Computed example of a mutant assay.
Amino acid sequence: MAKAIGLSVALFALWLALSGFFKPFLLLLGVLSCALTLYLAFRMKLLDDEAVPIQLRLTLLLYWGWLGGEIFKSAVAVSKVILARDMPLHQQLIAVPAPQKTDMGHVIFANSITLTPGTVTVETRPGIFLIHALTEEASAMSGFAEMGRRVAEIETR
């Protein structure tokens, strides 16, 4: 039941944010469309931990803010490399430990690495990721350790 409530609140919040209409008739249509979507998700047996990850802590919002800052800093660094006359690339593949305990944590960590400019998650194995880094600065293990620690904090234990 908690997953159904969580999904319906998220769907209506998304509908409201995307539509921006606050007229009673349109709000009613939004509620009805969210109810229909919830009914279809229930009938298709999609209300599980993967589809509705309410087990993640609210610190996920703080993590998104931190990740946005990291993405911006990396974008600036990659832009400097691209605009440099000699283009100082030092590409390498590195193995990064993945300290997360759940599949959802591994997905968040791998996608966070890929979202950060200059790094791409190439391969995932239990407990370790293979990462392609564009520069020496992008391959610093301290940055990956910090990101991994923050992702592990938002998981449920």
Rank of each mutant, 00 (worst) to 15 (best):
A2P: 06
K3C: 00
L7R: 04
V9L: 13
A10I: 01
F12S: 00
L18E: 00
L18W: 06
S19D: 07
G20Q: 00
K23E: 14
V31M: 11
S33E: 04
C34N: 03
L36M: 08
T37M: 12
L38P: 07
M44D: 10
K45I: 02
K45C: 04
L46D: 00
D49K: 08
A51K: 04
P53Q: 01
L56M: 10
T59M: 10
L60V: 15
L61Y: 15
G65H: 11
F72P: 03
F72T: 09
K73F: 11
S74G: 04
V78K: 01
V78D: 02
I82S: 04
R85F: 15
R85N: 11
D86P: 15
M87P: 11
P88V: 06
L89V: 13
L93G: 04
P97V: 10
P97L: 05
P99K: 08
I108E: 06
N111E: 03
S112W: 09
S112P: 09
I113F: 06
P117R: 08
P117N: 05
T119P: 09
V122A: 09
E123A: 06
E123W: 05
R125V: 08
R125M: 13
P126W: 07
G127D: 05
F129C: 06
I131D: 05
H132I: 01
A133P: 08
L134M: 13
L134P: 09
L134F: 11
E137A: 12
E137V: 10
E137L: 08
S139E: 08
M141A: 14
F144V: 06
A145G: 11
G148V: 10
R150F: 07
R150K: 15
R150W: 12
I154V: 15
I154W: 08
